[in-house]
């Protein structure tokens, strides 16, 4: 299924309060141009294209703010190389904040 350079489609999910920064929407289906995407690159793209408020609560330096968990297809990104993980079309990338409410 490799349609060249048509981009990739990924599902971005937000939970645990992280959705509050993204227009309160918990699920975003997006198409990304090209096919050379890492999560780190996606973070900057999300910041520019999806994030609605207070970017400092989502990102710190060039990664997510400590306390936000990231899962790729329901696997902890810490097992997958974190920001260096190369995204495949059809991946679901989930961001869960641990910082909201107890």
């Amino acid at each position: 299924m490799s349609i060249e350079s048509n981009g990739i489609s990924v599902i971005i999910e937000l939970g645990g309060g992280a959705e509050l920064l993204f227009d309160k929407r918990k699920k975003h289906s997006v198409n990304l141009p090209g096919n050379d995407w890492t999560i780190q690159k996606l973070l900057f793209w999300m910041k520019d294209n999806l994030l609605k408020e207070r970017p400092e609560l989502f990102m710190q330096d060039d990664t997510v703010r400590p306390g936000i968990l990231v899962l790729v297809n329901d696997t902890d990104w810490e097992l997958l190389g974190e920001g260096n993980y190369k995204i495949n079309s059809g991946d679901t990338i989930m961001f869960i904040s641990t910082l909201h409410g107890g």
Partner: peptide, 19 residues
Amino acid sequence: EKEIVMYAYFKQLVYFSTE
């Protein structure tokens, strides 16, 4: 905290999060 949130996620426990 990370494990608490992961546990809730994988067990699909419903919780409320707000500031």
